[in-house]
Nucleic acid binder design. Structure first.
Length: 466
RNA sequence: UCCCUGUUAGCUCAGUUGGCAGAGCGCUUGACUGUUAAUCAGGAUGUCGCUGGUUCGAGUCCAGCACAGGGAGCCA
């Protein structure tokens, strides 16, 4: 095992003359008459360690296996590099080959590959520059998320992944069953008899931990979940996954303004953390993936988000239309904001993240708190340029009678919400929360264009390999 | 799921009016006194996505299917 102090990122900081061993995978190799250069990576940092092999030091039968993709250990000495490109390099005294990689068939070449090709070799793409950087940033963001909430006294809640609550309403769900699909038990009415299933009733993979988070917020004040979420929608877009990771904070004694402030503070914190801790990776994204990434992140970390109500957003869009802008979908009060409308607001009007609040009640979920105008609810979407919706949240309806009335008016099965209603019956409190898609924020931070390329192994309709 | 576009060497792509299957990179052999996706010279490499149709002849035209990309919907 590699211990702290032995990673390649540590070797870069070692004093010249230090004897050390580097282990990792060969990115490329260059030969000259008297010297061979090997670029070695162990994933610990963006830069490769340059190994210098003076001809004759290493037996030819070992050196012949040191090709792109091979796994090797190099025993040698840290020396000052005489050439530009790196401050130190490792002068090899001995090389051990753990695993050769046939250079005529190894698919990763020392040249640019398309994301589509790399997606097909998800077992090897973590060794590429791009995906190395993606997964290091993903790791850093995950850590920053816990750090942000823990520093603020939030309780980390692991919400269940399997649920029998069909009250969530956030999208199509995957069934969880042990019934024999070739021989399904039937009720006397001919329906599938879920009483004979593993959980004694119909079960699904969760589409949100929000309801469980509300339970915990009404006991621990501030809580957050951070875990996988599943949506069975047949979505084929660069922004959707069937399995993705979501962070859902839920705060008691919090209204929509507090919710909005936390969302903004949270996004800025995560971005600042990545700027401070993943500089080399971000510089790579800026150079090779999207040359606006660094400027955008620095700008977002240091400026305030725009905030408009839905009603104000509609009037901005209406003004744009009367000024000659044409949209595919009509703009009127009561219509849901389409992707093109969100794009206009973030990319043309404000040119930064925009928080839109107070949507018409008809286009938002039943649990969102009704405003005094009785036409809008305390909903909140954070929209980011290029990505679209990055956060969705709301202040929750904490008034028992109002919530019951909404459940009845929307013809929802009242009996399924018994415990959700009881939370309002026994010690209710104003509370609010939101959901942030981990992969969405990763796309924003890295500039990666497809959500399938910011998760280790994407699950989408028709594809769940690796 | 809907609309549009695409699928040719290991990768990225060109392929004209239907008439011998191409390039760059990678790989390989050699050269080069320190290279940075090294450079220079030589070499090998094909189920033209699949199935059928039209034709003397199909990578090229037609139909169906599969997969991928972009856009839309659903949303985080």
């Amino acid at each position: 095992m590699i211990r702290p102090g032995e990673y390649i990122r540590d070797i870069f900081k070692a004093a010249t003359g230090t004897a050390t061993t580097a282990r990792g995978w060969v990115k490329t190799r260059r030969d000259s008459k008297g010297v061979t250069f090997i670029q070695l990576s162990d994933g610990s940092t963006f830069a490769d360690l340059q190994i210098v092999v003076e001809t004759g030091t290493i037996p030819e039968n070992i050196l012949k296996d040191v090709t792109t993709g091979a796994c090797i250990a190099v025993i040698g000495e840290v020396v000052e590099s005489p050439a530009a490109g790196q401050s130190v390099e490792l002068k090899a005294r001995e090389i051990q080959v753990y695993g050769a990689a046939d250079s005529t068939t190894y698919p990763l070449q020392k040249k640019g590959h398309t994301m589509e090709f790399l997606r097909g070799i998800a077992h090897l793409r973590p060794r590429s520059n791009t995906f190395g950087a993606v997964y290091r940033v993903r790791n850093a963001i995950s850590y920053a998320i816990h750090k942000f909430y823990q520093e603020r006294g939030f309780l980390y809640l692991t919400a269940p992944l399997i649920t029998t609550s069909d009250a969530e309403g956030a999208g199509a769900m995957f069934s969880v069953s042990t019934l024999d699909m070739m021989n399904l038990p039937r009720t006397s009415e001919g329906q599938i008899d879920y009483e004979q299933d593993f959980f004694g009733k119909k079960a699904h993979l969760t589409v949100s931990g929000q309801l469980e988070a509300e339970i915990f917020a009404l006991a621990f004040s501030n809580v957050y979940t951070f875990g996988p979420t599943f949506r069975a929608e047949n979505s084929n877009t660069p922004r959707h996954l069937a399995e993705f990771w979501m962070i859902e904070p839920e705060m008691a004694f919090c209204d929509l303004d507090g919710n909005r402030q936390l969302a903004e503070e949270f996004l800025k914190y995560v971005i600042a953390y990545v700027l401070d801790n993943c500089k080399a990776d971000l510089e790579f994204f800026n150079k090779r993936i999207d040359d606006t990434v660094l400027a955008t992140l620095e700008n977002v970390a240091g400026s305030d988000f725009a905030h408009v109500t839905y009603t104000e957003a509609i009037s901005i869009l209406e003004k744009a239309v009367s000024g000659g802008k044409s949209f595919e979908f009509p703009v009127f009060w009561g219509a849901d904001l389409q992707s093109e409308h969100e794009r206009y607001l973030t990319e043309e009007t404000f040119k930064k993240p925009v928080i839109v609040t107070d949507y018409p009640k008809e286009i938002k979920a039943f649990y969102m708190r009704l405003n005094d105008d009785e036409k809008t609810v305390r909903a909140m979407d954070v929209l980011a340029p290029r990505i679209g919706e990055i956060i969705g949240g709301s202040q929750r309806e904490e008034r028992y009678d109002v919530l019951l009335d909404k459940i009845r008016k929307q013809n929802l099965p009242e009996e399924h919400y018994w415990w959700y209603l009881e939370l309002r019956k026994y010690g209710t409190a104003p509370h609010a929360g939101f959901g942030l898609g981990l992969e969405r924020i990763l796309m924003y931070v890295t500039g990666m264009k497809n959500i399938r390329d910011v998760i280790p192994f994407p699950r989408v309709p028709g594809y769940a390999d690796f």
